[in-house]
């Protein structure tokens, strides 16, 4: 799993490349925690290159959402593919997260 970061107009865009399962959840969680440590709370998680997500990944996203919400921020998840989107739909997590189909649309949420 490669976790990248781009900052655009105060919005932090976290790019996930690879698989998000129990073997990679800590790396992603640590990166998000580090991003949030300066109090910033405008986060987009770009899943364009995310090839797999399990329930471990959902927990990482949920933890990030809680942190962002606690400081009145916003978290948007963008570019899930058909496979990764499905796990959100079947678990009901799709109703919890702000999910967009493109990065541009995600940025417009702020």
């Amino acid at each position: 799993m490669i976790v990248s970061e781009v900052i655009k107009g105060g919005i932090k865009i976290v790019g996930l490349n690879g698989r998000l399962d129990i073997s990679t959840q800590d790396a992603v969680q640590d990166k998000i925690n580090a991003l949030l440590s300066d109090g910033s709370a405008k986060i987009v998680i770009d899943c364009s290159d995310l090839t797999f997500i399990s329930s471990a990944g959902l927990r990482v996203f949920m933890s990030a959402l809680k942190q962002v919400s606690s400081v009145d921020g916003k978290l948007v998840i963008s570019n899930l593919n058909d496979t990764t989107r499905k796990i959100f739909d079947i678990t009901g997590y799709d109703s919890v997260f702000n999910i967009t189909t493109s990065l541009d649309e995600a940025i417009k949420q702020f």
């Binding site: 399990s54 329930s55 959902l58 949920m62 079947i90 678990t91 009901g92 919890v96």
Partner: peptide, 22 residues
């Protein structure tokens, strides 16, 4: 109870539940 589970950020049990759905 997924809505409660999600809201309260509970851990555990989700994997088995998913298996049964899938």
């Amino acid at each position: 109870d997924l809505p409660v589970y999600i809201k309260e950020g509970k851990r555990g049990g989700l994997g088995m539940h998913l298996m049964k759905i899938l």
